[in-house]
Design a protein around this nucleic acid. Structure first.
Length: 478
RNA sequence: CGGGGUGUGGCGCAGUUGGUAGCGUGCGUGCUUUGGGAGCAUGAGGCCGUGGGUUCGAGUCCCACCACUCCGACCA
C-alpha cells in the first residue's frame, strides 16, 4: 500500500477529482442520497459542521445588529412576478405547488428559491417612518431550485443557507451594508475555514437577478477551479418600487428605501472538502471541526491505558477543546485511518510506552507530523498544535491560489495558460459583454469578479483592444 | 437538456453458451489480540434497479423507463 494513501476506497484526487470528492462525502459519512434526485441527507457529521458555521456567523450577524426571522416557504405566483428581472432569473428553476389535498389551488404557489419577494411584501406592510429604518433581518432556512445536474454540497435542489435582507433609508447606507457583510464573509472564510478569498464585484452578466450590484468572494479549490463562497447584493430601490415599499422621511416626503441581501450556503462545506481534503479523505480546519482532537488508546486492555486516555480526554475537554476518545474495539490502525478520513485535525496516541515516559504522541492531520507532548504541558501544547494546523491549512491554500493565478495580455495567452495550467487568470477588460463572452468561448473561462484589489496590467482590453476599465479574474467555476 | 459509464446481500464486485446466485469486506456472537485498516470459530443477511417481451426456463437475450455518476450548457 502506498505510504501516502492508506484508504483504498478513496479514488486518488489527482486521477479523478470529481470521483475523489464523491468518495469523500460518502466515506466520511457526510452525505446520504435521498429518494428524490438532487436531495441529500446531511448526516450528523456534516450537520455538525453546518451548526458550527451557523453558530459563528449567527453570532457575528447579531453583533452587527441583525435579527433573525422566519418567512413562509411558499410564494404566490403573483408576488414572484412583481420584479421583472428577478422572476426572469428564477422562473426556470422553481418548483410549484398546485394542489392542497385533492383540491386544485386558485393560484399556484412557488417553493421559495430565495425570499426577496417575501421580505419585500412584508416590508410594504410594516414600514412607515424613517424611524423604522434600518431593518436588518436574516433567516436560516432551506430554499429550493430545480437544478438540472446535481452534486452533493455543490449543487442541491434543496439547500440550507442563511439569507440576510436589509432595508435602509439611503443608498449610501445600503451600499455600506453590502460591503460590510461581504467583509464578514471574507473574514469568516479566511480565519475560520482557512480558505483564502478574492473579494470583488461581479460583472453585469454574472450578477444576481434584480440586483444593481453583486459582490462575491471567490475561492480556489484544490483542482484549481473557482467556488463562489458567499455573495452580497446591493439592490438600490428597484425592489422597493416594484413592491411599493415607502417610508416618510424626516422632511415629511415619501421615499423608497434601499435594499441589500446576502447569503452563504451549505456549499461552503463542499468548499472546505475541496480546499483542504487529501487522498486520505477530509481535512478540517480546527476552528470549524466538530471534533478537534481524537484520543486513541494503544493496547487499551493493558492496565492503566484506558484510564489514562480518559484522563486526557477530560483534561482537554475542561480546557475548552472539542475532543473525543475512541475506545471502540477496533485496531489502532483502523482508528487512525477512520479519523483521518473524517478529517479530525489532531490525533493523540497514548499507550504503555507513552505512559512510562509521561507523554503522549500528537499527530497532525494536515501534514502527518508527529510530536511527543509531555503530559504536564497538554493544555498548552495541544491548542498550540491546533493553531499550527489552522495556519498550515490556510498557507497551503493561499499558495495554491497565488501560484495558480496568472496575468495574461491577450486571448491566445489566456487560452494557452488555461490549457496548460488551469487555475485563475487575470487580465484587463473594457467592460463589454461581447469580450466577456469571447473569453468564455475561446479560453473556456467565465469572469469570477472584478477584484477590489485592482492591478494595472496594461491600458487596453486584451480581447478587443479598446481602453481597459478594470482588471478581471477569470476561471472555471463550480 | 446533450454525450459517456454503472445498477446483483450494508459496501465493493464476480457470474462463461440462458438451467434458479457466489466472493471479498462489513454486520451479530465467542475467544485471542492492539504503536498504521488484527486472527480463529460461528451465524444472519438477496423480487439480481423497474416494467414489458422472447423462452419449457432470464441476473444473463430484446425493448422501454428510472436512478446514480462523470463530461458539457445553466446555476449558490
Amino acid at each position: 500500500m502506498a505510504k501516502d494513501k492508506k484508504v483504498e476506497q478513496i479514488t486518488d484526487m489527482d486521477v479523478d477529482f470529481a470521483q475523489w470528492f464523491t468518495d469523500v462525502v460518502t466515506k466520511a459519512e457526510l452525505i446520504d442520497y435521498a429518494g428524490v434526485k438532487g436531495f441529500f441527507i446531511l448526516r450528523p457529521y456534516a450537520y455538525a459542521i453546518w451548526e458550527n458555521i451557523q453558530a459563528i456567523l449567527d453570532k457575528r450577524f447579531k453583533e452587527l445588529g441583525h435579527e433573525n426571522v422566519s418567512m413562509p416557504m411558499l410564494i404566490p405566483e403573483s408576488l414572484l412576478q412583481k420584479e421583472k428581472d428577478h422572476v426572469e432569473g428564477f422562473a426556470p428553476e422553481v418548483a410549484w405547488v398546485t394542489h392542497g389535498g385533492s383540491e386544485a389551488l386558485a393560484e399556484r404557489l412557488c417553493v421559495r428559491p430565495t425570499s426577496e419577494t417575501l421580505f419585500c411584501d412584508h416590508w410594504s406592510h410594516v414600514l412607515r417612518s424613517w424611524r423604522d429604518l434600518p431593518m436588518l433581518y436574516n433567516q436560516w432556512c432551506s430554499v429550493l431550485r430545480w437544478e438540472k445536474t446535481t452534486r452533493p454540497f455543490l449543487r442541491h435542489r434543496e439547500f440550507l443557507w442563511q439569507e440576510g435582507h436589509t432595508l435602509h433609508a439611503t443608498a449610501d447606507e445600503a451600499e455600506q451594508e453590502t460591503q460590510q457583510m461581504l467583509g464578514v464573509y471574507a473574514d469568516f472564510c479566511e480565519n475560520t475555514l482557512a480558505m483564502p478569498v478574492i473579494k470583488g464585484r461581479k460583472t453585469d452578466k454574472e450578477k444576481f437577478a434584480g440586483a444593481v450590484a453583486t459582490y462575491s468572494i471567490e475561492c480556489m479549490m484544490h483542482d484549481k477551479k473557482a467556488l463562489q463562497s458567499g455573495t452580497s447584493h446591493y439592490f438600490g430601490d428597484g425592489f422597493a418600487r416594484a413592491f411599493d415599499i415607502q417610508f416618510t422621511d424626516k422632511d415629511n416626503t415619501l421615499k423608497y428605501p434601499h435594499q441589500t441581501s446576502w447569503g452563504m450556503t451549505t456549499r461552503l462545506i463542499g468548499g472546505l472538502i475541496m480546499t483542504h481534503g487529501d487522498n486520505n479523505g477530509l481535512v478540517l480546519p480546527p476552528r470549524i471541526a466538530p471534533v478537534q482532537v481524537v484520543v486513541i488508546p494503544i493496547a487499551m486492555h493493558k492496565p492503566g491505558v484506558l484510564e489514562k486516555a480518559q484522563e486526557l480526554v477530560s483534561r482537554l475537554k475542561s480546557s475548552g477543546i472539542r475532543v473525543k476518545g475512541d475506545t471502540s474495539d477496533q485496531s489502532p490502525g483502523w482508528k487512525f485511518a477512520e479519523h483521518e478520513m473524517k478529517g479530525i485535525p489532531l490525533r493523540i496516541e497514548i499507550g504503555p510506552k507513552d505512559i512510562e515516559n509521561n507523554q503522549c504522541l500528537a499527530v497532525r492531520r494536515d501534514n502527518g507530523e508527529k510530536t511527543a507532548v509531555r503530559l504536564s504541558e497538554l493544555e498548552t501544547a495541544i491548542p498550540a498544535l491546533l493553531d499550527q494546523v489552522q495556519i498550515g491549512l490556510y498557507n497551503k491554500a493561499k499558495k495554491n491560489l497565488t501560484d495558480n493565478t496568472r496575468p495574461v495580455t491577450n486571448v491566445a495567452e489566456a487560452k494557452a495558460v488555461m490549457a496548460e495550467n488551469g487555475g485563475f487568470i487575470k487580465s484587463m477588460w473594457c467592460g463589454d459583454l461581447a469580450c466577456e463572452l469571447q473569453m468564455k468561448e475561446e479560453a473556456g473561462v467565465s469572469s469570477r469578479c472584478i477584484p477590489f484589489a485592482q492591478e494595472h496590467l496594461g491600458d487596453t482590453c486584451p480581447i478587443c483592444g479598446k481602453p481597459a476599465r478594470h482588471m478581471v479574474v477569470w476561471g472555471v467555476a463550480y
